[in-house]
Structure formats: C-alpha cells, structure tokens
Amino acid sequence: MITYVFPGQGSQQQGMGSELFDEFKELTAQADEMLGYSIKRLCVENPYSNLNKTQFTQPALYVVNALSYLKKTQHSDKKPDFVAGHSLGEYNALFAAEVFDFETGLKLVRKRGELMSMVSNGGMAAVMGLNEEQVSQALKENHLHTIDIANVNAPYQIVISGKKEDIEKAAPVFEAIKDVTRFLPLNVSGAFHSRYMSKAKQEFEQFLDTFHFSSLSIPVISNVFARPYKQEQIKLTLADQIDHSVKWTESVHYLIGKGQMEFEEIGPGHVLTGLIHRIKKDGEPLSH
C-alpha cells in the first residue's frame, strides 16, 4: 500500500514548481487570474519576499503540490491507497481525493491564508526532545496556560503556539529542561492551530458553507482526528483544523497500522519524509 503525503507551510522555497508552470499552462493561467498575480513569478523569483507571507505561502504551496500530483499521476491510472497532508497540505489531499477541483481548492486556501494572516502578534516554536505529554506538563507546571500545542510532528518534536511574548517567555523555561535538545522559534506571524485562531475559524466556517463538495474517492486522513475524513463532516473538519492541533504523529501511526505502508511526499522539499522516518523509528503503530 502507498500513501501520498503533501507538505504545508515551512516547505516553501524559492524556485519551487519552476518546471511545472509551463507544463500546466492552463491551470497556471487559471491561478493567475484568480489570485491577481503571477504564481510562477511568486514561486520562481519571490519578489518582495512574499513567498514567506502566509497569504501568499498557502496559495503557492497548494498550486505547486497540486501540479506535482497531476504530473505524478498523468501517465498512470494508479491511485494511492490513502492521502494525507500537513495543515495546508490537507487541501491537496482532498484535491487528490476529488472532493473539489483545482480552482475550488485554490479559492479555499486563498481565503484561509488571508484569514490566518490577519491574526497577528502570534508566535510558534518547536520543542525538540520532549514528547507531547512532557510538553503539556511543562506548560502546566510553569503556568504557561496561554500556550497551546499546535503540532505533534514526531514523537519528540512538538510545536507550541500562542502570543508572541508568551512564546518568548517559554524559551528559557524549555531551554532549562535537561531533555530539551532544541527550542526553535518558527518564522511565522500567527499563532496557528491554537485558540487564537478561533475568529479566523468562524469566518472560514461561513465561507465553507457556500461550497458543495463531492464524494471522497480516496480515504483522506484528517489532521484533527488522525483518522479518515467522514463525508458529512468535511466542512466541519476543515474549519476545526484552523484552531486544532495537527496530529501528524498519530496520523502516520494509524497508516502504518494498516499493514505494509509506503509513503511518498508530493510537493517541494522532504520535511514530511524526515518526520515519517523519525515517527517510524521512535513510535508504535496503532492497530485500530
């Protein structure tokens, strides 16, 4: 069995997709028209360093991931057994599962990126060396009640999210814990996947209501539940994803528990491939 995984924010890099835009001229033109700027120029030349700004990063990654998937599958009818994506990448998993077409997916991620970029003064940091329970305990013991766990990326790589000053306050606390190998503030302006995104989530929920989604053609593993999407809960799950943790470790364990599972990363970089390798090394597969 094989699962295709699609990366999210943090995997963007200048030059990504450069070989795809001319090959998929029609879709590239469709993206340009909807976004009001050249997606090729954004990804290849990165003018004004916009590629790292959320409202640009999300559409750019969605387009490059989608074109990478189309290129991968254009000469073969063979579909993956499962698909999954990390945060923004989940939209590409749903696109691969034919829940919506290229244009609808782009409309959704453009709106999502806009709403998420409007939540400022937030911060995120990766804590390496502790598991989810230990991070949770450290937050509790040190009265850091305003910080949430945003991503469980690997058994010992947990991302926390909160107000910028609270994340800064947390740095010396975690650096003083002997098992912490690294405390790495992330290059983001918002407290993604935390309670601070609830207003963005509510607005996105209303936006989602205006769309109709097709039946899932491939099982998609959701970040929120680390289990396959339920057809009748697609909109709800997509809205929840904005202010809930990304359960990446558990998602991969669930897939490994299905039997002989291979993973292939579709899109720029190898971030997820690295995380999956660590999850396999340090964790236990789930049998249900």
Score class of each variant (00 low, 15 high):
F95S: 07
A154T: 15
V188R: 06
S120H: 05
G105F: 01
G162Q: 13
I149Y: 02
I221A: 05
F192C: 05
Y196S: 03
E132Y: 12
R182N: 11
F183D: 07
K199T: 15
N92F: 02
F100E: 10
K164M: 09
F102T: 10
A170R: 03
G129T: 14
Q137L: 09
G123I: 13
V224G: 01
S189V: 06
T104C: 10
L216W: 03
L106T: 01
K140L: 08
A176G: 15
T181Q: 10
T210K: 14
D148I: 01
V119E: 13
S189F: 03
I177Q: 02
E175P: 00
A150Q: 08
A93T: 09
H145T: 13
A96D: 12
L184Y: 13
F211R: 09
D148F: 01
D179Y: 05
I158K: 05
G190Q: 08
G129E: 14
E103S: 15
V109E: 01
M128S: 14
A126E: 13
Y156D: 04
N92H: 07
L184S: 15
A125G: 02
E165D: 14
L108C: 10
A126H: 12
G122V: 05
I177G: 06
H193T: 05
K163R: 15
I177M: 15
P172E: 09
E205I: 10
V152P: 07
H145F: 12
E165G: 09
Q157A: 08
L94Q: 04
M118L: 09
V109I: 01
S217P: 00
D148R: 04
A226Q: 04
K199W: 03
K201E: 11
G105W: 05
K111P: 06
G162H: 07
E205Q: 15
S198W: 03
E203T: 07
F100T: 06
G123K: 06
F102R: 11
Y196V: 11
V127G: 00
G129W: 03
K201V: 01
S214D: 13
A176L: 10
F207N: 11
P219K: 01
F183T: 05
H193Y: 12
V224N: 01
L106K: 02
A150R: 00
E141D: 14
V180L: 08
S214P: 07
F213C: 01
I177S: 02
L139S: 03
E205H: 14
K199D: 15
Q157T: 11
V159K: 06
V188E: 00
I167F: 11
L115D: 03
A93R: 09
T146N: 10
F225M: 06
M116E: 09
F174V: 08
K178L: 06
S198A: 12
M197V: 08
K140E: 10
N121T: 09
N151R: 00
G190S: 15
F102Y: 04
A138V: 12
D179I: 10
R182I: 09
I158L: 02
G190C: 01
G113R: 08
N223E: 11
R227A: 10
R195T: 00
R112A: 11
K201L: 00
D209N: 15
Q206I: 10
E132I: 13
S217Q: 14
A96L: 06
N223D: 14
Q206D: 11
N121E: 14
S194R: 12
L106C: 07
D179S: 15
V159C: 02
Q134I: 01
K201S: 11
F100W: 11
E175S: 13
N142F: 05
